[in-house]
Amino acid sequence: MVANPYSNEVRYSLGLMLHHLDAARPRRVRLATHCVEMARSAARFLCHSQLTLEVESATIRDALGEIPKVAAEVRDPQRSPADAALFPFSLEEGLRPAGEPLLVAASYNGLSYKRLLYPRQRRPGIFATMAALRPAYCTQPLAGLYSPRFILGLALAKMLEGRDSARYFAQEDRTMRRLIDTGPLWRFSYIVIFTGHRTA
């Protein structure tokens, strides 16, 4: 399944990813995606940072060129790796790091409740996704989005929606405040945000 860059799940994921990237203060960042719209979405979160984006194609470079103050160039595999790489739902597309010291990724997790909704969908669990990056990278989960606790809260809100608007809005808000789960339930969240630090 291709991620919809305008969906809530992608917006929230990008916000968290770019927050962590921003903390590392990189100068050159590889934006690892083949999707033009995903690249645009990610670039919006970067707009006022002083950095250069390395992208996967001239099409993406040209699309980002329309955004003022965003500097983008096509990635040159012969050149030294960028300071950091962003993988917005693109590890599952087969894109891989090229030696960047830091990676920040968002990945769908085959171990989440969605597996129950779509049992025939084949998607790797988050542990397999992270393991595929080892031993070159030491991976660390940052948070899970749409954890089981969140989904239960949202289901309760939906049950209340037709009965009592006031209780629905209160429950929905209570649930949304728990959208980002940094506790152990990240393992079973629909989306996992994690970092990888190059080991050698």
Binding site: Y6, R11, G15, R44, C47, I67, P68
Partner: peptide
């Protein structure tokens, strides 16, 4: 650019 207020940076 980035005109969507509470929704975050989107036009």
């Amino acid at each position: 650019r980035n005109s969507s207020f509470q929704q975050g940076p989107m036009e």
